[in-house]
Write a protein that binds this DNA or RNA. Structure first.
Length: 808
RNA sequence: GCGGGAGUGGCGGAACGGUAGACGCGUAAGCUUCAGGAGCUUAUGUCCGCAAGGACGUGAGGGUUCAAAUCCCUCCUUCCGCACCA
């Protein structure tokens, strides 16, 4: 092969040049109508924290590669990007550094857009969505009002999660192990009046994932989060208080004859009403103490149970007995009705509580059908009902329904279903979010702001002190308004919406972010929706992905959408760990990609992010291997610019090329970027030792395969070869199955499962021929010495295993 | 505690029940270069052996099978989710 001085691979110059060229030719703009089928490829948009860090690259570079691949496969791919731009970090920056959240956010977005450009991401920026702009959040307000009209947005008092550090309430989903999702501060419960979205109305539908290609893991997590339980809701009357009753939910109505006491959560409204005067001081002290505990303290699993007797009694309507009513914080105010019937014989928690306080433990479910005097531990399994009046002798499985029906007949209960899922608390006592479009009027009460007065714009001049309450409450010009109904002075709601509201519908806004007559351009939406592929971090398995599904279904029922699920296919990438923790600005362990981009080029870093391992697994960040992929790109560069030389067609090389096309195609379709890159590396190694037409075609195919991974390098080579147009507009290479199959294979010869020889034989050798070849192997013969052949197992094109027995 | 992943060379990781360790990092030797860097070639699981070759080897132990990293059982470690949900 002729040696010729080849220009060095200089990524920075190449990448800058093509970046400009692609901008000039609007290469990344996607039309809504084309002769190709539309494909909406969505990836979760970032919070504008200031930098596209290595963790972001891990999410976006492979997603961009997948979107580019689908383009080459003949799809008209929409790959938009935007910013989830409201949120508490901007506000904290304002408090700490006296920068207005809007200015801080704008500065960060400008930098991050530039970083996206340098990455080479094929984003259609005409469609950018920024959630903190009034043009966007007015549609949050519109959606709120539509949900309000339907009864799906309501204001109510409930024990809510309060983060003392962020000084705001949090949704259940934002409390991780009793701590604030954002700042890790232990959360406390507070009774507050707040706005909720009625996600529980969709609990059953959210449990169905029909037609969705979503990871099992996410479906399981959402299913568990929703937590559907079947049982009965029953009520015991309160002694001496006609008309008052304690309602509770149970999954074990069959154990009702063992309900020897009742327990209320400390927050239960009946506690104050029914407590006997003599017990009042103790009960109040207990309730007060529970109120001041963090959720972590209250729910510590190993903690000894505590409680106090209210001195009041309820009547077990099945046994007819009076049973004491206790207050204990092991009963959760937020689940079921906030009260339980305690069946100590058949519930571990009730058992521990009854033992500690000397309450009666009465067996009513017997595993063997016999009555036992005392129990060492709660028996929670199924069995036969005993000491259960007319139900004695009934199997517990049947007893559940029978007792519930009997309760219905007597008017003291009914079969019921309860969910762990709570309604979505959307009020936040923060500034940097969407104002809630409600006005409070002394005369008219709670009044929705009319649609034609939207958006309610966030006032710019606000004092950021970081101290108590909603910042908007201190802005007189914002708070004071007139009632839309009666025109008298009134006050605005001063809370803002949870930012997960913003991200629950942004995929619709991308289609036409400028439209000002609707939240979405439906004509465009009909061409793209629902999303064909969604990618993003597994950390959003519950939060964002559940809200997004709920909002889709709610908008559907409002007549605004025509499909049941927002995204048909979901692919989660794993997490990039650095210093033992997820990489994020707020954790202060961010690694910047910029130095690697400067030193090796964006193509190298893109490839490296994808080469770290399986995308779904995440990785510990360690850049020490980046040289390897850089060397590979250097080799491709050299291959691309060197003369292939003369020579005959090389069947082995042709096979390698077609096999690699097949392998990379399969891997990309399944998001196996790491093995696709390994296959391309193998091909480049093989091509270096080839010449002639096989090499020429191989280099061309390799460069096309590489195009979605390394868009700059491949475009430059394409251009230098004098090819017309962009490589990214070319069709994905195809393979000939006949050539992709090998001509010769290595046949492993085993004797009793141990490898004794390797034979190179033509592919497709028949079983008898393979068997004969193996038996003729001198090494196999040597291993067979002194033994008889029992049988021969042949796996065509793979191996021959000669099974022996001792010569008799 | 419950549910779900995952344990493979010095490292990241490959392996339809059929050649364990592809590809890459690192390391070593050699070539090339004025030099720095880079590039190229070869070797590189462990042990025994001068070699040919052999034995062992996928967290531990058992099982199924002609054949197990892969399937089954028990256990250990680790990651993730849920965590007093009645």
């Amino acid at each position: 092969m002729k040696k010729r001085k080849i220009e060095r691979y200089a990524p920075s110059a190449i990448e800058a040049m093509w970046r400009d060229e692609w901008a000039r030719t609007r290469a990344h703009e996607t039309p809504d109508v084309s002769d190709k089928p539309n494909f909406y490829f969505l990836t979760m948009f970032p919070y504008p924290s200031g930098d596209i860090h290595v963790g972001h690259w891990y999410a976006f570079a492979p997603a961009d590669c997948a979107a580019r691949y689908l383009r080459m496969r003949g799809h008209n791919v929409l790959f938009p990007m935007g910013f989830d731009a409201f949120g508490i970090n901007a506000e904290n920056a304002a408090i700490d550094r006296k920068i207005h959240p809007a200015a801080w956010t704008e500065k960060n977005m400008a930098h991050m857009r530039d970083q996206f450009h340098r990455m080479g991401a094929a984003i259609d920026w005409r469609r950018e969505v920024v959630t903190c702009y009034p043009e966007y959040y007015r549609w949050n307000q519109w959606m709120f009002l539509r949900l309000y009209e339907k009864g799906l947005a309501y204001r109510g008092e409930a024990p809510v999660n309060w983060c003392p550090r962020d000084e705001t309430v949090l949704a259940n989903e934002q409390v991780i192990a009793g701590r604030c999702e954002r700042c890790d501060t232990p959360v406390v419960k507070r009774l507050m009046t707040q706005w909720f979205f009625k996600i529980t109305a969709y609990a059953d539908e959210l449990l169905r994932f029909d037609g969705l290609d979503w990871p099992e893991r996410v479906r399981v997590m959402q299913t568990n989060w929703i937590g559907r339980s079947e049982g009965a809701e029953l009520a015991f009357p309160i002694e001496g208080r006609p008309g008052e009753e304690i309602r509770f939910f149970t999954t074990r109505p069959d154990t009702i004859y063992g309900a020897t006491f009742v327990v209320l959560a400390p927050e239960h409204p009946l506690v104050a009403k029914i407590t006997a005067p003599a017990r009042r001081a103790d009960v109040e002290r207990y309730v007060e103490r529970a109120r001041n505990m963090t959720e972590i303290e209250r729910t510590a699993a190993e903690r000894e149970k505590t409680g106090v007797d209210t001195g009041a009694f309820a009547r077990n309507v099945f046994t007819g007995e009076r049973v004491p009513v206790w207050v204990a914080d092991y009963v959760l105010a937020t689940y079921g009705t906030g009260a339980i019937m305690a069946v100590p014989a058949h519930d571990e928690r009730d058992f521990a509580f009854a033992q500690k306080y000397g309450l009666e433990i009465r067996e009513v479910i017997s595993p063997d059908g016999k009555e036992h005097a005392a129990l060492d531990a709660a028996y929670v399994g199924e069995g036969v009902m005993v000491r259960s009046g007319p139900f004695a002798g009934t199997r517990s499985e049947e007893g559940k329904g029978a007792v519930a029906e009997e309760a219905r007949r007597r008017g003291v209960g009914a079969p019921a279903v309860t969910y762990r899922l709570r309604d979505w608390l959307i009020s936040r006592q923060r500034y940097w979010g969407t104002p809630i479009p409600i006005v409070y009027c002394d005369a008219c009460g709670q009044v929705p702001v009319p649609y034609d007065q939207l958006p309610i714009v966030l006032p710019r001049d606000v004092e950021f002190t970081g101290r108590g309450g909603s910042p908007l409450a201190h802005v007189a010009s914002f708070v004071n308004t007139t009632c839309p109904r009666c025109g008298k002075p009134a006050k605005r709601d001063t809370d803002t919406m949870d930012t997960f509201v913003d991200s629950s519908w942004y995929m619709y806004r991308y289609l036409d972010p400028k439209i000002d007559t609707a939240f979405m351009n439906k004509a465009v939406g009909r061409r793209w929706l629902p999303v064909a592929q969604y990618t993003g971090g597994i950390e959003h398995a519950i939060l964002h992905l559940l809200y997004m599904r709920f909002v889709c279904k709610a908008l559907r029922d409002l007549g605004e959408l025509w499909f049941d699920e927002p995204a048909l296919r979901l692919q989660n990438q794993g997490t990039i760990i650095f210093g033992g923790r997820k990489m994020s600005k707020s954790r202060g362990n961010v690694q910047t990609p910029d130095e690697y981009v400067a030193k090796y080029g964006a193509d190298t870093l893109r490839l490296f992010m994808m080469f770290l391992g399986p995308w779904t697994e995440g990785a510990d960040w360690d850049a020490s291997g980046i040289e390897g992929v850089h060397r590979f790109l250097n080799r491709v560069w050299t291959l691309g610019l060197s003369e292939p030389g003369d020579g005959p067609r090389d069947r082995a090389i042709d096979h390698a090329v077609h096999h690699t096309v097949e392998k990379v195609t399969e891997d990309l379709a399944a998001y196996r970027f790491n093995t696709a890159i390994a296959a391309m590396m193998e091909l480049s190694n093989a091509l270096q030792h080839a010449s002639g037409p096989s090499r020429r075609e191989g280099v061309r195919a390799l460069t096309l395969l590489l195009a979605p991974f390394a868009p700059y390098l491949s475009e430059e080579l394409w251009h230098r070869w004098g090819q017309a147009g962009s490589i990214h507009a070319q069709a994905w290479p195809t393979f000939d199955p006949a050539l992709a199959a090998p001509e010769e294979v290595t046949l492993v010869v085993q004797v009793d499962g141990k490898v004794r020889d390797r034979l190179t034989v033509p592919a497709g050798l028949s079983k008898p021929a393979a068997s004969d070849a193996a038996l003729a192997s001198p090494r196999a013969k040597a291993a067979l010495d002194g033994r008889d052949v029992d049988r021969v197992v042949v796996v065509p094109d793979r191996l021959v295993n000669i099974v022996t027995r001792r010569r008799s």
